[in-house]
Computed example of a mutant assay.
Amino acid sequence: MPRFTTSDGLSLHYTDEGDGLPLLCLAGLTRDGRDFEFVAPHLEGVRLIRLDYRGRGQSDWGEPTTYQIPVEGRDAIELLDYLGLEKAAVLGTSRGGLIAMVLAATAKDRLLGVALNDIGPEIAPQGLEVIKDYLGRPPVLKTHAEMAEARARVLIAFQNVPPDRWLREAQILFNETENGLELTYDPRLRDAVLEGGAQPMPDLWPLFDAMSGLPLACIRGANSDLLSPETFAEMKRRRPDMIAVDVPDRGHIPFLDEPQSLNALWRWLDMLR
């Protein structure tokens, strides 16, 4: 099981598969490298590197105070150092996209390009409240099958999703035990996020602008409650060269194997080669 040790002593899990252009995949807030399971088979000619953040997936748990985007960005750079990679492209889903923007501002020389999955420099308040509501709380449902059925019923922003996809999502997001479903991340992540949310939201547009000159793509769920149409429009205005697509029948976040998502990613990767 591939692992590396961070500068503050945590052992983090990652996967490193394929040959070609190095593509570092950074997952959503509570997710891990399996976040990219659905898109991985469609990305040919890349070296697909997927990181489990500290406190998530198969990585060590740390102090909740370190569950911060700058620290997770440092972990990503340390993984590149460990692998001997001077540069990599970054595909960032939600939290991972925010990390990518921070890296553009602090370690731009390590980036080949950035693709954002349903995230921008402004986060819609209603979507943030949804995240705060479930974050760190163990589910009351007992099985993956029950969770899959519940997600299909409740996530009305998503349409035309086959039942087996919801089941696999449930298997990725929760561990099934004899006592019911368990979180696949440190529940103290909630404390870190709520503490951060108690501070005024910083202006993230300078981080977006820091990606100037880097090949950029953004994939948005057409029904997203986190990346608003207004923010998406401003992103396109500031970066008219950005590959930008709305994925129909998807909320936060697209699975990335939708035809629109794949077309955007393929075009973006072609720019990097």
Rank of each mutant, 00 (worst) to 15 (best):
R137I: 12
S7T: 14
F38P: 02
L183Y: 10
A145V: 11
T184R: 15
I219E: 08
E176W: 05
I131C: 03
R74Y: 00
D19P: 00
A100E: 03
L26Q: 12
E230W: 05
S7H: 10
G180Y: 10
L272K: 03
G113H: 01
I99R: 08
L48S: 09
A104C: 12
I49E: 13
D75H: 11
G213P: 10
A198C: 03
V247M: 05
P206G: 01
L80Q: 06
L204M: 11
E230Y: 01
L26M: 09
D35A: 09
A192D: 11
I172V: 15
F174R: 15
D81P: 04
E17N: 08
L216A: 14
R153F: 04
A222Q: 15
T30Q: 10
F4K: 05
G251F: 12
L214N: 08
L112H: 01
D164S: 00
M147F: 03
A210G: 06
S11Q: 14
L23K: 08
E78Q: 14
R54T: 05
T15M: 00
L214A: 12
A88G: 07
D246N: 13
M201K: 14
G55D: 06
R54A: 08
T15A: 04
G221W: 11
P125R: 09
F232S: 04
P125N: 11
E129N: 07
A217T: 03
L135Y: 03
E78G: 04
A88N: 07
E129D: 14
D209I: 01
V247P: 11
R3N: 03
P139S: 08
I77K: 01
M271T: 13
D225P: 00
R250M: 11
R273G: 00
G197K: 00
A192C: 06
R56V: 09
D118I: 07
P254M: 11
G57Q: 04
L23Y: 05
I156C: 01
N175P: 00
V161C: 03
S94N: 07
A192H: 12
K236H: 06
F158I: 02
E234S: 01
I243G: 09
H42E: 14
H42P: 02
D257P: 02
S11H: 10
T177E: 05
P259W: 02
D209C: 04
W266D: 08
C25Y: 10
V161D: 05
L26V: 07
P248L: 09
E86D: 15
V39Q: 12
I219N: 10
P163F: 00
A198M: 09
R47L: 10
L83M: 06
L135D: 06
D16K: 05
Q171S: 10
R50I: 11
V154S: 07
E234V: 08
L227H: 06
L128H: 07
P254G: 09
Q260S: 03
H252D: 13
L21M: 07
L91K: 12
E258R: 04
L43G: 08
D32S: 15
V130R: 15
L181G: 05
Q199M: 12
P138C: 01
A150Q: 12
A107R: 15
L262S: 09
V130C: 02
R190S: 09
R273S: 10
T5F: 00
A152F: 01
D81T: 06
L167P: 02
P248H: 11
P125L: 08
E37L: 13
E149S: 04
P202D: 04
E149L: 02
E178A: 14
